[in-house]
């Protein structure tokens, strides 16, 4: 209980910090929207009957939004907090470590929600993105966001142990995310990619998240164009769940309070 209450206070503080850092607000929230407008305006061609590349791309961008808000943000922010002495100071207080992670989760949840709503809204207004057509699809969207955010958060925390310092972090993390986006079918139609790229991407959660988002936002007739000819919702669920569990174990084991 005490852990939750302190976690809520941490979350409040983290949100204040998040929204006061204009660069990071712009980077995490507006950059994906910008990308959506650029790519969406350039590639308007149809890739299947009733499906434009813009729609395909926006589904992928929504999935990427989860990676930006969680993985990318935390993997860069936590090493910076080690540099600044934030973590060392917290370590010296009776704050339960779990409260710190709850605080991070709050920021990720808020930033994911804003991002998904913005992308869906602008997507519908300007690029004919169709809102989910059934209750079942809305439900799927919900668990995709939930599981996706958890994966993204815990993997971001786990990855934060790797960079030596905050300055190095963004240099390592940003390219990884961009390459992963290329491999996972965000910027290109996944099935058009070389086989080895597809197989490599299938190891990581982003590929499954983008596929899941397509199953929510594209007509069911498009399923035959996927790698196995179907949406594979069940498999997506299991793979994301497995990553969430493995990521949590990894995050707990690898977390570092100091730069050594």
């Amino acid at each position: 209980m005490r852990t939750l209450v302190i976690g809520a206070h941490r979350g409040q503080l983290e949100l204040k910090q998040f929204f006061r850092q204009r660069e990071s607000v712009v980077f995490t929230l507006l950059f994906p929207i910008m990308l959506m407008f650029i790519f969406g305006s350039i590639f308007k061609n149809s890739i299947a009957p009733g499906v434009t590349f813009s729609q395909y791309f926006i589904a992928g961008m929504i999935a990427s939004g989860l990676v930006n808000s969680g993985f990318q943000q935390l993997a860069i922010m936590i090493p910076m907090e080690r540099d600044f002495g934030t973590l060392k100071r917290l370590r010296g207080t009776p704050m339960p470590p779990l409260s710190y992670f709850i605080g991070k989760l709050v920021v990720v949840a808020v930033s994911v929600t804003i991002q998904v709503v913005l992308l869906m809204g602008f997507g519908e207004l300007f690029f004919h993105l169709h809102m989910p057509t059934s209750g079942e699809k809305w439900l799927r969207l919900l668990w995709l966001i939930l599981l996706g955010s958890i994966c993204s958060t815990v993997l971001g925390i786990a990855f934060s142990a790797l960079p030596k310092n905050g300055r190095g972090a963004s240099a390592i993390v940003s390219p990884i995310v961009i390459v992963l986006q290329f491999f996972s079918g965000v910027f290109f139609v996944f099935t058009d990619l070389p086989k080895w790229m597809q197989q490599l991407a299938a190891i990581f959660p982003l590929k499954w998240l983008t596929q899941g988002m397509r199953s929510v936002f594209l007509p069911d007739s498009f399923a035959v164009k996927e790698a196995t000819g179907s949406w594979e919702s069940g498999r997506i669920f299991i793979i994301l769940l497995a990553w969430a569990v493995a990521g949590t174990v990894l995050a707990v084991k690898s977390f570092r309070w100091s730069n050594k």
Binding site: L13, K16, Q17, R20, Q21, E81, F84, G85, T86, K88, R89, G92
Partner: peptide
């Protein structure tokens, strides 16, 4: 029960 004043910290600038 203990209080610590660290030698150097530069955190929480935006708060």
């Amino acid at each position: 029960r203990i209080g610590i004043v660290l030698q150097s910290a530069s955190d929480a600038g935006d708060l």
